[in-house]
Nucleic acid binder design. Structure first.
Lengths: 331, 331
DNA sequence: CTGTTAGCGCGTTCAA
DNA sequence: TTGAACGCGCTAACAG
């Protein structure tokens, strides 16, 4: 590896002069500057980020934490947005693997992991309310952090999320427009802000539109097709059945499977509306409330950059929009 | 941030003693060791990886390069396998964003990026033959590297891939068993090893089984539904039509769409067999040749660790297997 | 068994 | 305009 010393030697200047050239500081003669640049180029020299980070405390690295980032369709797209914005600004992404947390002698935590790697900031995704206590030290530290879909704020912390409440209202309103009155909802994990918000929006709309609310039509589970499948099977056995179901995309697809397996069809017998707009949903022509996943990643990145650069910042709520597919019908 | 000096001061020992404790070296008295450990724990101390990396040249970081890693269903699962193995061994993953490559003064390349970040090794995925020239300096360097689906080898380089040739043969053999004789193939990108290998396997099987080969039944494009859709539309217009189509999953799905749009059905009118077994394919009950994506990631990781640890290593070819869905029928 | 010293590659005073 | 000296946090000889 060619270092700043090699360059200094070859250019017959001191390394601090080379450093000034690297950082484009003033106070270097034009001719020496040119000479140094030439040598750097000839030797394919690039200053070592690690050493640089050690002395400047700035690494041009953004940490990413998340227990389910990669095996999740949703976050895959969020990641795409992060990569675009951060890459553009010259940052690389450090994905923290979920290795053993409790090392021998220390209560090792997010904060320490970030300090350990000198990341300039961190994006947290895939966490729910149950995890909040774990973030205590991180939030109290001066490490810039942005949460996705978890409303945590602090002097160096903010969050981005979609307008889940409004989106859920939109779903119910659309079903109501089509003439549906009896609407079921299958929720994802309870401890997650997105689920709660959507449930709130659902109830708001039910009340505002004077639709019947029946606790038998409310289900929860996790964010999986299985949850949708099992819940729908129970719906199919109810005495008083709903005519429409609102659920997150993956869950909605599970519900569709249960309906078809029972010899019924969508939207003939049941109207189904999703939430998320993950790619798989499009293969089912799912009517859904779309979030802007890539936009979430981009917004989180820009927000984090603002925190890092000491600019003003506040939480960002992205709008949702209705995508009409083929799984809802007029009744 | 609490440093080794803070600990040394509080424990009233020198920092080299602390260092020895950290690294669990021998030559430290039991009582001092215990005292130091206690202080470390009390202060939530964890040695800074960046500083450590600077002096040891070992960062416990694996670099990941790939132009299309995240916006690709296939590599998402490979990444999962990498995360599992590397996380288990205490490595974090540095995802290099694709920012501007040609900086002002240097022909900045993979090798320099790796040196720059002191990564212990690098996994390259999503590259084709067209990119090989770019890897020249990386291959000549002493940076351990493993390629996925690109057969590059060297003193510190190896690769993993699936048995694409054998898998393609398997696909043709299965179709032949079902009585198909006229088999079309729609290939993904030409410059990629996987496509070439599968084409070779396809031709081998055609020849071995004495099936007709018709250049009108051969198509190529990119790895997209659109390619499958357009190619299939052309197939539907041929005078002499095949009865079965072999194509990578996403392409196969596009072909299915074209068939259905023409008012025909699968497998009634055409049998379709895929390759990859991406999650979306399962929603179409696609018969396909499955690769083990997570296994690819795991194998790449283990291989890379072997190179890093100076153990013996050689390329790994993972087997494929036939998954029978509902898109092929006897004729 | 413990501490002193030097050095990893770079940025940053502060003199010259 | 330039360079010597020091420090970032840590490891690695080497003495004591």
């Amino acid at each position: 590896m060619v270092t700043i010393n090699d360059i200094a030697k070859k250019a017959k200047v001191s390394k601090s002069t080379v450093s000034k050239v690297i950082n484009n500081y003033s106070g270097v003669g034009d001719d020496t500057k040119e000479k140094v640049l030439k040598i750097m180029k000839e030797n394919n020299y690039w200053p070592n980020s690690v050493a640089r980070s050690l002395s400047t405390k700035k690494s041009y690295t953004i940490g990413i934490f998340g227990p389910q980032i990669l095996n999740n369709f949703f976050f895959r797209e969020v990641f795409e947005g992060i990569e675009a914005v951060m890459g553009d600004k010259g940052y690389d992404l450090l994905y923290f693997t979920n290795k053993q947390w409790d090392e021998s002698w220390v209560d090792y935590s997010y904060k320490e992991k970030c300090e350990n790697r000198n990341v300039d900031g961190v994006i947290m995704m895939g966490y729910g309310k149950v995890n909040i206590a774990q973030f205590d030290r991180l939030l109290k530290s001066d490490i810039p952090s942005v949460f996705i879909d978890l409303d945590l704020v602090g002097s160096n912390t903010s969050y981005v999320t979609s307008d889940n409440t409004g989106g859920a209202r939109k779903a119910v309103e659309y079903l109501a427009e089509l003439g549906h009155k009896k609407i079921a909802m299958i929720r994802g994990l309870n401890g997650f802000k997105v689920s709660t918000d959507r449930f709130v929006g659902f109830q708001q709309a039910i009340k505002a539109l004077n639709l019947p609310y029946n606790s038998e039509w409310m289900f929860d589970g996790d964010y999986s097709m299985e949850t949708g499948y099992q819940s729908m099977k129970r719906i199919l056995n109810l005495d008083e059945k709903p005519t429409a179901v609102f659920a997150e995309d993956l869950i909605a697809i599970g519900a569709i499977k249960a309906i078809r397996q029972a010899g019924l069809n969508v939207p003939g017998d049941y109207s189904i509306i999703g939430f998320d707009s993950i790619e798989i949903g499009r293969h089912y022509h799912l009517t859904t409330i779309a979030q802007d996943q890539i936009g979430l990643g981009e917004a989180a990145s820009k927000l984090l950059l603002n925190i890092i650069n000491k600019k003003s910042f506040s939480p960002i709520i992205l709008p949702t929009r209705l995508i009409i597919g083929e799984t809802c019908r007029k009744v």
